[in-house]
């Protein structure tokens, strides 16, 4: 069934919703949904004990209310939509391959870790290591789009190797550490230490970030590519819109890296 879940009470311990996706719920009777076992603290509980359940729209899972202890929301999602009205905990959208995850509140650590596809939008802030590699994995997010309307914690985009992370607020310390490829765009400010160990990939910033040692300034360029990106990636259009030129820094040269940091400079926008 397609369901709307309402948390009956604030959680007293962490609850892991990994794998609870519209696809996993499809075809299940309400009683079966209620009986789904979920790891809760040191135990396992039936979903029905913690949530009130009612039918919803096909292909969509809605969580009314949220909780910072609600882990793994949307983890493993491949298709369909998950909507959370409030906060979520760690690992939201972990390993997600497709579909849409919308979070109305804040997210905990490792949002979109290991993402390979799909789209995540969050109205609030994200914790540490958004788009990074899940515990023990070699590489971070490889594809898909993560839109964070608030701020992101430290090491956003760590080991990222593809896809787009757009942070409308500020990025925490050491963003894009050991980044392999992909794009991390920040509308607000970068905390210190960004870009350490970047191999390739692109950081887009509005003001010159306080980068880690190892970046060389190649000057300001009229980057046609920016306009192309703005046209191709609608998510970036807003950030790039007014920019025609960018200062380009390349690094981390301490490790032979060829990552680029594009600092947008506003000017007369050419017609897009």
């Amino acid at each position: 069934m397609s369901v709307v879940l309402r948390l009956k009470a604030p959680l007293a311990a962490r609850l892991d919703l990994e794998g609870l996706t519209p696809a996993a719920l499809a075809g299940k009777a309400p009683a079966e949904v209620e009986a789904i076992a979920l790891p809760h603290g040191g135990r396992s509980v039936a979903l029905g004990e913690l949530f009130a359940i009612r039918a919803g729209t096909e292909g969509r899972l809605v969580l009314e209310g949220g909780d910072a202890r609600l882990d793994g929301v949307g983890a493993g999602l491949a298709a369909g939509e998950i909507l959370v009205e409030g906060d979520v905990g760690a690992h939201a959208g972990r390993g997600m391959a497709g579909g849409v995850l919308r979070i109305g509140g804040h997210a905990g650590d490792e949002l979109a870790a290991g993402l390979t596809g799909g789209r995540i939008e969050i109205d609030g802030n994200a914790g540490a290591r958004a788009g990074a590699a899940p515990s023990g994995a070699r590489r971070g997010m490889a594809g898909g789009v993560v839109l964070i309307r608030g701020h992101a914690g430290e090491r956003a985009g760590e080991r990222q190797r593809g896809g787009l992370i757009l942070i409308e607020g500020d990025a925490g310390a050491e963003a894009a550490t050991d980044m392999i490829a992909g794009t991390l765009a920040v509308g607000g400010r970068f905390a210190p230490g960004a870009g350490r160990g970047m191999k390739r990939g692109t950081l887009i910033a509005r003001a010159t970030p306080d980068l880690a040692e190892g970046f060389a300034d190649t000057g300001t360029h009229d980057l046609v590519a920016l306009r192309l990106i703005a046209r191709r990636v609608p998510d970036l259009a807003g950030l790039i819109a007014a920019a025609v030129r960018a200062r380009r820094l390349v690094g981390d040269r301490l490790q032979g890296g060829l990552g680029e940091v594009l600092v947008l400079e506003e000017g007369a926008a050419s017609p897009a």
């Binding site: 790891p39 603290g41 760690a90």
Partner: peptide, 12 residues
């Protein structure tokens, strides 16, 4: 260890 199964996470 969460009920019958276990899960590792170096941060959480």
């Amino acid at each position: 260890i969460r009920g019958e199964t276990s899960e590792h996470d170096s941060a959480l």
